[in-house]
Design a protein around this nucleic acid. Structure first.
Lengths: 215, 215
DNA sequence: CGGAATCCTCTTCGATACTG
DNA sequence: CAGTATCGAAGAGGATTCCG
């Protein structure tokens, strides 16, 4: 049985870290931010982690009600892992980690480091401030050479999809770098448009309002 | 030399965790939130951590410019560790960890778990929302049987002191439990006063305004 | 195929003893 | 007091196997 090493401190920080402070754990949470995933989907995004260790971590998280294991569909025997409401609360922790990570001296992107476009989606989702345009609704296509991301603006936040095509109201087009600047609040949409870095089409008003939610 | 194990992922979360995700690291940051500390001050608050490991962690943090080592006083040979501006940015991460930790199913306080009053001060400092009363200034004494904490309200946030006596404008008195409810936003000052759990004196208006910054 | 269990090696941790 | 050295214990990483 996993006896879960603990700091044994009567402190909320230490308490939290007892549950999600171990190696790999927060990266597992990151993987589940965009929705439920299966064991086999998690593994390739966690290169270097053994299958046994992933099993252990998933069990720990499950016993602490941070995630839950459920059938992919009602009568299926295939299982998927999903954040519980408690686990979703970790969005706030991840958001601040992203913010802190952004301002870090950027090490030159080492060639042996893994990259998954979904990680950008996680950042976009978490950095989006719906309160800046609470009533906004619609779908924006974020198009670059590398990927086509559909951002579906809904009442309960931003839903992001990279794998399926959706009908969309507006399009923002450009390269990854410019989008990064936009989403991370380093440049405004107007700045990037006037620099010819980004281009908008369709419902441009929607696109503008949506983009203003990142600054 | 410390070769600092890395996740090797082009993701801001993973990048951040490469620096501050290892065991004990965030607890060291917690210790430095209230101000600089010496090696010997850190150790007893990190029970179970070997001295060698603390040395290693401090060096890692120093090379990544999260903390810096400096003389206690200009010409002293005694050294202390202090957060850099980059390190101070981790306040946001710690704040969210505290918030998440608070809503965790409270395990019965195990007898072998360590408790340090300073950890409460860290929580108070980080949960205080100055923007709720931006112009407030003064000193509030938070008095319980266990401790006398001076909260000095300043422009750049809350300064907290448990070791020295200060002149104060207002006093809030009660037991630790009630204070916890107040600071963690679970109860309002008015509620706690009407329950006879807390008592205020001195500049009660200041005390009320200050207390409202936690809800 | 998904994922749990087993082994084995290597690294990190934890605790204590030691040194400038 | 501030760290270094050491060593057994625990955990991580990788490959492989087993089972439904």
């Amino acid at each position: 049985m996993s006896k879960a090493r603990s700091y044994k401190q009567a402190c909320n920080i230490a308490l939290a870290l007892d549950l999600i402070g171990e190696r790999w754990t927060l990266l597992i949470i990151r993987e589940l931010i965009l929705g439920p995933k299966r064991f086999g989907d998690l593994l390739p995004h966690l290169q270097g982690m053994g299958t046994n260790l992933l099993t252990t971590r998933l069990k720990e998280l499950e016993t602490h009600a941070v995630i839950e294991k459920q059938p992919c569909s009602p009568n299926s025997r295939r299982m998927q892992y999903k954040l519980t409401p408690l686990g979703e609360g970790l969005e706030n922790v991840l958001r601040e980690l992203i913010r802190w990570g952004i301002q870090l001296p950027q090490s030159p992107p080492s060639p042996d480091s893994l990259y998954q476009p979904e990680w950008d989606l996680v950042a976009i989702k978490l950095l989006y401030k719906r309160e800046k345009a609470p009533k906004l609704e619609g779908t924006v296509l974020i198009k670059s050479v590398e990927s086509s991301i559909y951002a579906i603006i809904a009442k309960d936040g931003l839903q992001l999809d990279i794998s399926t095509t959706h009908t969309h109201d507006a399009t923002i087009e450009g390269n990854r770098d410019s989008f990064e600047k936009l989403f991370k609040g380093k440049s405004s949409l107007n700045q990037l448009i006037s620099q010819n870095s980004l281009k908008i089409s369709g419902n441009t008003s929607l696109a503008r309002k949506w983009a203003s939610c990142f600054s």
